[in-house]
Design a protein around this nucleic acid. Sequence first.
DNA 1: TACGAGAATGGTTCTCACTATCATCACGAG
DNA 2: CTCGTGATGATAGTGAGAACCATTCTCGTA
Lengths: 115, 115
Amino acid sequence: MLQELAREPDDVTAQELWSRLRRGASTTGLATVYRTLALLSDAGVVDVLSHHSGEQCYRLCGEAHHHHLVCERCHRVVEVEECDLGGWVNKAAKRHGFVATEHRVEISGLCAACR
Amino acid sequence: MLQELAREPDDVTAQELWSRLRRGASTTGLATVYRTLALLSDAGVVDVLSHHSGEQCYRLCGEAHHHHLVCERCHRVVEVEECDLGGWVNKAAKRHGFVATEHRVEISGLCAACR
DNA sequence: TACGAGAATGGTTCTCACTATCATCACGAG
DNA sequence: CTCGTGATGATAGTGAGAACCATTCTCGTA
């Protein structure tokens, strides 16, 4: 399953991943795909993106803190490792009486190929 | 419908909004709620948050560019008007050959009451 | 090797958010 | 008044994801 995930550079839906596995030699059930994805997501090995409303996309990602850059046209996804937003986030949170514990940034735009 | 939306300081699901309307004197259909929410969302009057996986939340928001601060415990939502991330976003995008057209930031944490 | 408890798996069914469809209704022009 | 057009609400349909359960795998013990 991790092999199949690694074969996809961008993000996949659970259903898509499942049918790819079935097209291969695997007999994995859909339930197991969902269970495993949930496990991997808890473990921080895969990221869950919900940009397609109604369906979630999964992506094998580095475990370090990072954000995502998504191409509007071809849906290519790139990790942005450099995040020095901590200061800004904390300040913005503090200004409204919050204590920030997490932040997610999603940048959409056009990739080099689609530009 | 806008009245009912304005009555909710945080975010509501379409289903929740519909049942509130029906509990009142309205005879609005569920389809119309979805239709209207889609319209308002296109017009930029309401924001769509997808932090509850499987269901989308809607919120009456200012039309200016802003981000959201969500309380992990009580789900209170606050708008963050101040966003000077444009520079960082463009730089990060450029570094990966992208042209950024939009960015969304969601900060989760604990609000003053839940802290 | 044989056995058995408990965990993992896969098939199936179920739920429910959301969409499509369609008959009906309101309204405005002629 | 009448026809047409666009909006509305009820209902059925769709599809992602979760719940359930029987079966299979794993592994320690005898």
